[in-house]
Simulated scan of single mutants.
Amino acid sequence: MKVTTARLTQHVLTGRTDGEPVLFVHGNVSSSAFWRDSVAALPEGYRPLAVDLRGFGESDPEPVDATRGLRDYSDDLAELVQALGLDRVHLVGWSLGGGVVLRFLRDHPAAVRSVTLVNPVSPYGFGGTEGPDGRLTHPDGTGAGAGATNPDFVARLKAGDMSDESPTSPRNVFRSSYMKHPDVPDEDFYVRSMLTTHVAESNYPGDAVTSPEWPGVAPGKIGVLNALAPTHFRLDDLHEIDPKPPILWIRGADDVIVSDTSLFDLAHLGALGVVPGSPGTPAQPMVTQTRAVLERYGRYREVVLEDCGHSPHIERPADFHGLLTAHLGEA
């Protein structure tokens, strides 16, 4: 269904229309389609809804003001929740969506019944930080932002490339990075979802800015990847909210995207010698940072799924749905 608010029109994938609302929020370069099976698997007593974030799927490609961090997305969710008259939602956020639901939780704690994080982005954004406290490597956030993405991947995404002819094709990125094991049923379905990403400077990836420091890129002011930069998105005060809904953190042990040694982190790639000229900048310890923030928050549980990558809800659906359903019931 489509829901129009003052901010934009959002597409929402739905299941049954009664029960406690469970709002699923997808990750970067994907859409609500990645939650298809989770929406279908939710038991009676729950009302599943999976939203397309702005610039993804069938929602409007409104510009992303990166200087607000992820608040454009979380404010969209707040209007959606209000428009549908949802009372105290369960939030489920994957990757980028994990950051979005944490931003929503920080701003609207009383509106949240529970939170489930699935391989979420660090509360200190993506790239440009060091240590468990998320300190900036450089004041301008060098190492993060739209300039850190692969230009060939962006070009192929914009062209709607369904092939597997290049390591940077969306299909091969799905196989090598979204999943640990590439033999996923309905692969075409998920790749088509990736291709709904609106490629533009104001959406994905954003405006690229240069920096005099290695690796030569810094966050811009518009677009998805810049909204994830640590100069714009930081949640080190999550423990201050009241009330504190319970948080379940599910992650694949072998995730190569959100990791303490992420293959998408320029600092770690520099240490591996993939990006030349590295001065030895430490990798961003993304998992460690998330754990540090949740330890301060207090009311959370971490579950690690072995032999699983970035997408537990697709790679290990039975385990994921069992954990989610139990968490919803406990909440």
Rank of each mutant, 00 (worst) to 15 (best):
R7M: 01
L23T: 05
G27V: 07
S30F: 14
A33K: 14
A33M: 13
R36P: 08
A41R: 10
P43I: 02
G45Y: 07
P48S: 01
L49T: 01
V51G: 02
V51P: 05
D52N: 12
G55C: 14
G57L: 10
G69F: 00
L70K: 01
R71Y: 14
R71H: 15
D75T: 11
L77Q: 09
E79I: 07
A83D: 01
G85W: 02
V89H: 00
S95H: 05
F104M: 03
L105G: 02
L105P: 01
D107V: 03
H108S: 03
A111Q: 07
V112K: 00
R113C: 00
T116L: 03
L117A: 14
N119A: 06
N119G: 10
N119K: 06
P120H: 08
S122T: 12
P123R: 02
Y124L: 12
Y124E: 05
T129E: 01
T129N: 02
T129G: 03
P132C: 08
R135D: 05
R135K: 13
R135L: 07
P139E: 13
G143H: 01
A144W: 04
G145P: 03
G147A: 04
A148H: 00
F153N: 08
V154L: 06
G160I: 06
G160K: 05
D161R: 04
E165T: 15
T168L: 13
V173S: 03
S193L: 14
T196Q: 15
T196V: 13
T196F: 11
T197M: 09
V199G: 01
Y204F: 15
P205M: 09
P205T: 11
G206A: 01
V209Y: 05
S211G: 06
E213V: 12
W214T: 02
G216V: 04
A218F: 05
K221W: 12
V224D: 10
A227Q: 08
L235M: 11
D237G: 13
I241L: 00
K244D: 00
P245I: 03
P246F: 10
L248N: 06
D255R: 04
D255Q: 10
D260R: 08
T261F: 13
L266R: 14
V275I: 14
V275N: 08
V275G: 08
S278Q: 06
S278P: 02
P285W: 02
V287Q: 00
Q289N: 10
V293G: 01
L294I: 14
Y297P: 09
R299G: 04
R301N: 11
V303Y: 10
D307L: 09
G309N: 07
H310T: 05
H310V: 04
P312M: 09
G329C: 04
E330I: 09
A331Q: 02
